[in-house]
Every structure is written in structure tokens, then in C-alpha cells.
């Protein structure tokens, strides 16, 4: 039986994740909480807007309303990587070789491990930012499409056009596909080798959470009363194929998804705080957490795939041990 170790915090949880195998919870008020032989917390920002871990899960990189980009380690030590004054840092991403990227207004920035910063100015707001898993490349979600930059080299960016407002962005783990969330209730994808479009629509609500399966064969997403899981096994991605619908509930929206670290299983978080795990192969479901106080906003699996951290918009967070 799965067991839940609850952590009741005060405020909206922006990100729940593992840093060096320690459960971390980044809250909108700027505090980063962790469960490391007891509950500890540090105030990192005056208002936290975005958070993500680096590729090795060795540090948490956060952006705030205070215009700062910070890096926090599992021992609670924190360092300021960048400062933009009174501007909001709305999106952060971590890339290879210790590089990070962050966005504020119409600008995207890449900061290399040596502290050198490269700025990319766009005609419209940078809504989302992500690193490609291969090479030093970032993707920026923007109005009417996405822009790819190669921060280590000079040269023109690659523009991918699709009408509408693109808000979030992710590369497939093999680097072959780019997928954006949209202001409309849809995802849009590009096959990067030839720029072919993939329209993934039919959602009843905006998609706010996406997660690639461990081997990158599936992309799970929120925005419906089930986790919508698109097949990416073939070279043309999900085109012409129906997605899986996992954990379907009558009248409750999925608000967050997180794929397992090794197997084709997803943790599915709902607007009422419930968390299920569902296996892609046979769609078998296991209840991990009963409904709580607020919508699940963020989840992550540990490296071994045994524990799930979750956070909610009401602050009722926790760690689920699958094996109990």
C-alpha cells in the first residue's frame, strides 16, 4: 500500500521536486521547503514564480518577482545567479554543462557555467523557455510560434511559426520534437528535422502540465478529466494516432502529470488534490493520495521511481512512498 507523508505548508506550491533525492517544495511566497531529516525551509525570493531542477537534480533553480534567479542546493545554501532589478523572472530552465536560461518580459537569457550571460531579445513576450537535451540550444515559446536559439554560437535563430499564443515549451528527450502548450486548449508540436506540424487538440481546458515518459515514447498532459498521453514512438510523432486517456474521472480535471523515472507509468494529480498512478500498458490505476485541499500543481518522481513528491495550490504537499 502506498503511504503518504503529508507536509502542510501555507501557500501555493509552484514546484515539488527532488534535489539530491531530498523532497523540495518551492512556494509562491519565495520559501523553499525541504524534508531532510525533518522539515527545513529557506527564504530564497520575495515572491517565487518559476522553479526547476538541473539535469542531475543537484540544485533547484528558481526565478522570482524580485528579479532574481537563484540556485539552491539540498543543504539549503542558496546563491544568486542573476539579477534584473524589479522585473519578474517568469520562466527558468536548466541545460547541459551547467547552463541555465531565464525569461523576463520579451527577453530570454542564457547564463553559462562560467557566469557569462547571453541575452536574446524578442518582439513579443517570452512565455516559456526550455533547453534541448542535445547540444546547447534553447527553445522559446512566444506569440505565433517558437524560436530556437544556439547560445554558444552566433547566428540567426530558427523560427517555428504557428498562429496563436504559445505559453509553455518542452523538447522530447531525444531532441526530435518540440511541443508547446497554448493559450487555446491545445498543444502544438513540431518535428524538428523537417518542421512538420502536429496539432494536439480536443482538450476541455488549458494544458498546464506536460511530462515525457522515461524513454521519451510518450508525452503525458493535463487539461482534461483524464491524463492525455500522446504516443511519440513513430518518427512522425502522434499524428493520426489517438492518445491514451488514463485515470479518467467523471467531473474532475487533471491538473498535473509526472511520468515515472524508468517505467511507462504516470502519476496523475487532480484539481481536488487526488493523486493516482496509472500504467500505460494496461491502464491499471492505483490510488496514491485521497483528495485534499487544493489542486495538485506539481509532482516529481525520485530517481529510483519509488517516491512521488506533490504540491498543491493550497499548500497541502507531501511525499508518497509507492511501496509503503
Amino acid at each position: 500500500m502506498p503511504t503518504v507523508a503529508p507536509l502542510d505548508l501555507d501557500g501555493h506550491c509552484v514546484a515539488a521536486t527532488f534535489v539530491a533525492d531530498v523532497p523540495h517544495f518551492a512556494l509562491a511566497d519565495g520559501h523553499v521547503h525541504r524534508l531532510d531529516h525533518g522539515h527545513k525551509s529557506e527564504k530564497v525570493h520575495d515572491g517565487l514564480l518559476a522553479a526547476t531542477t538541473d539535469l542531475a537534480s543537484s540544485r533547484l533553480v528558481t526565478g522570482g518577482e524580485d528579479g532574481k534567479v537563484c540556485s539552491t542546493k539540498a543543504d539549503g545554501t542558496s546563491e544568486t545567479l542573476a539579477e534584473l532589478g524589479r522585473k519578474w523572472i517568469t520562466s527558468v530552465a536548466c541545460g547541459p554543462q551547467g547552463a541555465i536560461a531565464y525569461a523576463s518580459g520579451r527577453n530570454a537569457y542564457v547564463r553559462f557555467a562560467d557566469g557569462k550571460v547571453k541575452e536574446f531579445v524578442h518582439p513579443r513576450s517570452v512565455e516559456g523557455i526550455a533547453f534541448s537535451p542535445k547540444g546547447m540550444r534553447i527553445g522559446v515559446a512566444r506569440y505565433n510560434g517558437a524560436t530556437l536559439h544556439f547560445p554558444a554560437a552566433d547566428g540567426k535563430p530558427t523560427e517555428l511559426e504557428w498562429a496563436g499564443a504559445h505559453t509553455g515549451i518542452t523538447f522530447s528527450p531525444d531532441g526530435n520534437f518540440l511541443v508547446t502548450t497554448m493559450q487555446e486548449n491545445a498543444l502544438h508540436g513540431w518535428k524538428l528535422v523537417d518542421g512538420k506540424h502536429m496539432r494536439m487538440s480536443g482538450y476541455p481546458a488549458k494544458v498546464k502540465s506536460m511530462s515525457w515518459s522515461a524513454k521519451g515514447k510518450w508525452l503525458a498532459s493535463s487539461g482534461a478529466p483524464a491524463a492525455i498521453v500522446w504516443p511519440f514512438q513513430s518518427k512522425d510523432g502522434p499524428m493520426g494516432k489517438a492518445p491514451l486517456e488514463l485515470g479518467t474521472r467523471g467531473n474532475m480535471m487533471v491538473s498535473a502529470v509526472a511520468c515515472h523515472s524508468a517505467d511507462d507509468i504516470a502519476a496523475i494529480g487532480y484539481a481536488d488534490g487526488m493523486v493516482l498512478a496509472a500504467r500505460f500498458a494496461d491502464q491499471k490505476e492505483v490510488l496514491l493520495r485521497r483528495p485534499g485541499k487544493g489542486a495538485i500543481t506539481s509532482m516529481a518522481w525520485d530517481k529510483e521511481g519509488r517516491r512521488v513528491v506533490f504540491g498543491s495550490e493550497s499548500g497541502d504537499c507531501g511525499v508518497i512512498d509507492i511501496a509503503g
Binding site: 522585473k87 520579451r106 513579443r124 506569440y143 498562429a163 496563436g164 493559450q183
Partner: peptide
Amino acid sequence: VESDEEIYEMNNGCVCCTVRG
């Protein structure tokens, strides 16, 4: 809070579906 005015047209470009992103 400082914010760049971002006019986003949705779907078909109709003014009725235009929002401030």
C-alpha cells in the same frame, strides 16, 4: 508590477477573442 502589453488573438483572429496575454 511592470508588464508589456501583449495583445493575443485567439484562433481565428476575430477581435472578440483578443486578450492581453
